[in-house]
Design a protein around this nucleic acid. Structure first.
Lengths: 153, 153
DNA sequence: GTCTATTCCTTGTCCGGATAACTTTTCTCA
DNA sequence: TGAGAAAAGTTATCCGGACAAGGAATAGAC
């Protein structure tokens, strides 16, 4: 019937790297979400807090850069975190366009939990992997990252 | 100031595998979305259509399994695709609970574009990688997948 | 045969991610 | 200096992903 039957029969299984990335990312994100649940944070928010804890108050656009997000997502997320008392917003004294975001004292109570969750995530992710395998995987991921970011031009 | 400064100063950079997975997944998904744009589909919908094209009409729960999604997401996605004329729903003749989903003839017009987009995605993902590097990366991802799915218990 | 447990699906809610459209402010440079 | 380009945020609209709750039908146990 179809003159492309042989190519098509394999279409769901024949994109090995792409599908593997999909599945690993999904599992990894789910695991991160589960570990983070006890902190009450949603995946992504902890990255914002970690950036604020580490680098101090900064503009939203800096946070976007730090966690590799985008402006609308960050604006919304910051609003929610502000409402939750995790974060404070104030106008930049030197740039009328910018908003300075800082972590509240209340957010510090989460710091140990967040650090623990991330450590646990990394532990679970690399459990059973030798250091050689780990660096191999890391090198592979770095390679993929550079290839993909070049492809995104 | 902080008695944990040394540990904490590295908190954004010291989870190499986890962060690498995050970044690769993000780039990969963005690339997939861009390639898919010309089909008018949103990322995820093409997986549903590919499953229907390849395996024929099936229940929603089978589609959930095929694309590794979940029931609520699938229900909503199918509804949208039904509204868009890509998919048809009918009650199962043998199971009163189940719904049989099938691809419409109209959806077939997208098949070549979708196949092309996925081929291009894989090509861009693996461009510049030797076959040895490819299998190395694939093995690494498979390893991560098995570790992560075991951790998700 | 009935009562319970399971399965399949749906709806509602909340979240992040992406795009587009827009406002306000700053920067650039001719 | 003054016009236009660029940057920072916001809001809107979609989308998929996750969770909770619930209805309806089937399957299983007794």
């Amino acid at each position: 019937m179809s003159e492309h039957a042989t190519e098509r029969a394999a279409s769901l299984g024949a994109r090995p790297v792409s599908h593997a990335i999909f599945r690993v990312a999904r599992l990894h994100k789910a695991l991160a979400g589960r570990l983070l649940r006890e902190t009450g944070l949603h995946p992504g928010q902890e990255l914002v807090l970690m950036a604020l804890w580490d680098q101090g108050p900064q503009r939203q656009v800096d946070l976007v850069e730090a966690v590799d997000s985008d402006a609308p997502t960050m604006a919304r997320s910051i609003s929610r975190m502000e409402k939750a008392g995790l974060v404070r917003r104030s106008p930049s004294p030197t740039d009328g366009r910018a908003v300075i975001v800082e972590a509240t004292e209340a957010s510090l109570a989460l710091r140990d939990k967040v650090d623990g969750a991330w450590a646990e995530l990394e532990r679970l992710t690399t459990t059973g992997l030798g250091t050689a395998q780990q660096s191999e995987i890391l090198a592979g991921l770095a390679l993929l990252e550079s290839v993909l970011s070049k492809a995104g031009d």
